[in-house]
Amino acid sequence: MVISVAASTNLVLALSAILFSIGVLGVLLRRHVLIIYMSIELMLNAANLAFIAFGRLQGTIDGQIAVFFTLTVAAAEVAVGLGIVVVVYRELKSLDIDRLNLLKF
């Protein structure tokens, strides 16, 4: 039994969509800053999976190269984000996003 490339790509894209939805749920449901960051990482990872699946479908290497740029962006985002988290924790002694309301009237 051999499954065509297009059909297997659709399976991989389904997994990618599921992982992305879990990331969206994490951002919407959780209140902890670090868990929200990890959900964003999961969404970036789902996007990487879709990149690789499409690159394989087209038979080119471009999808895999796009993944490296996503990785770079993820690394930069985590570095800046965790720096902000450390500063916020020193100020508020809490990482609950409901308490980060200084910009609210």
Binding site: T9, N10, L13, A14, S16, A17, I18, F20, S21, I22, V24, L25, L28, A50
Partner: peptide
Amino acid sequence: AGLLGLLIWLGAI
């Protein structure tokens, strides 16, 4: 979120 995931998948395939 489930609806969003379904839409992403349909759009992708």
